[in-house]
Design a protein around this nucleic acid. Structure first.
Lengths: 261, 261
DNA sequence: TCCGCTAAAATCGTATCCAATATCCAAAAT
DNA sequence: ATTTTGGATATTGGATACGATTTTAGCGGA
């Protein structure tokens, strides 16, 4: 399991604007414990530290975080709303498990929404934003060896673009959809040569942003995601379907995830 | 506040398939209390019985439902994940309040997603499903006078179509987006002559389903939603912006919602 | 191997308690 | 008359303890 995590970049409380709090070291923070736990759990699930299907024992989590069960339950409920965990009465919570079809489903939605977001964003590009994106691309080249860092930079890259669209709901949705499939995307990012291809595709999207060409940007963004599905889906099929067409055991699934890291 | 509500048609627990429970009269049900409360609150918010921005007092809700505060808080957390309520630390929960821009944002997403869902659904239409849709249309003509019933039938109509697309995630997303703007849609549905226009548009979408014409169906579904925004957005502007360009007070907003019912 | 039974564990909810923080209203000051 | 301040009150966030119910796991036997 992950260590205590205090970075709240992934903070997506949709409601009131209440920020500018001096961030402290986890349990001494002003934010409610259930939010900190929700954020931490979200990140560990996205990072694949909790495997899909894994049961989430409330007592265990409570003692791990050093809190009572109540804020843990609250955090889990919130994550249920985000569809990162599933809930079954009297059986509790488990990390959401996606079929290959659901992954495809979600990606096809992402293709539409992120294509739209890119197209809407490009006309609003400022010099400052382009600089920040360029700097992100630089870091992608430098530090893209570690999967965790690469995915983090990836989120930031697309986030910087989509933000410019000035469509908070659209951005929130794409973020959520990305979160849901993030654990599965790790399989893709470790695939042969895809890291380099991703970098190339990002660079071309950036060029479209520079040139202000919204149509091209949209097309490239869509193709980018399409390429990911194209590699990811066969890989998922390969790692979750045995010769007799049955699902893998949890152990084999764990293996598939382990070698993706 | 609304009475205790036991219809769980809008039940959209995304996780495990755990249905087929004999529905009883609210608190004597087997389902966890926090789920029942979440469902009830979701419906009352969608019905506009809790106005946007209204604070949701936990103690009050607990005593209203005759339970302790814990399941109420859990229900609120879940609804926060669905973006039907917003949360602010130490201040609690309030019904989510959308700006006109956010309503437009959400509708433009709905147009894409529901257009896609309609197109994908039409090739999978069965005779049984077409019959059910036809029967729904019949009821729309008969019982469409009451806004609540009309919106319920509306949900069912589109739900029946989208279901056929066999894309559970896509359907779940459209359902959620619809839920979020439902309270605001009430303003639209009460607008002059829109009820009849909606019926006509539904009938034409149904014809496209019958003829198996996916492209036409998609176009009609999109136009249908576009027509709704076209009426709704000016109406929202009219009812939330004063002559000097400032926001209305809560009292005036309540009025605007009241005459929409 | 496959049942069926029992024991252990986990969930769900109540009740109660307390600290921290908002909220509200009245008094004071500008 | 409006704004500011102060303090009482209400509400939230969380701990803790307890009980009821339900899963789950283990184990012995056919």
């Amino acid at each position: 399991m992950s260590l205590q995590n205090s970075r709240s970049k992934a903070d997506q409380t949709p409601g009131f604007g209440h920020m500018a709090k001096p961030e402290t070291s986890f349990l001494s923070n002003r934010r409610p414990v259930h939010e900190l736990i929700a954020d931490s759990l979200r990140l560990t699930i996205m990072a694949g530290h909790h495997l899909p299907g894994e049961r989430l024992n409330q007592e265990e989590l409570a003692s791990f975080y050093g809190v009572s069960r109540m804020p843990v339950r609250e955090a889990l409920l919130k994550l249920q709303g985000e569809e990162l965990v599933v809930y079954s009465p009297r059986r509790g919570f488990a990390v959401a498990e996606l079929t290959v079809e659901e992954v495809e489903d979600i990606f096809s939605i992402r293709i539409m929404l992120e294509g739209l977001a890119t197209r809407l964003a490009i006309p609003h590009m400022t010099v400052q934003r382009l600089e920040r994106i360029a700097e992100n691309l630089q870091r992608q080249q430098e530090f893209g060896h570690d999967t965790d860092v690469r995915l983090e930079l990836n989120r930031e890259f697309h986030g910087l673009i989509y933000e410019a669209a000035k469509r908070p709901r659209l951005v929130a949705l794409t973020t959520n959809l990305r979160n849901i499939v993030e654990a599965y995307s790790r399989i893709y990012t470790s695939a042969e040569g895809r890291a380099k291809a991703t970098l190339r595709e990002h660079a071309r999207i950036f060029e479209a942003c520079q040139h202000g060409d919204a149509e091209v940007g949209e097309r490239l963004a869509k193709e980018h995601l399409q390429n990911i599905v194209g590699v990811l889906v066969p890989e998922l099929h390969r790692s979750t379907v045995t010769k007799d067409g049955e699902q893998d055991s949890a152990a084999e699934k764990e293996l598939a995830f382990a070698d993706a890291d």
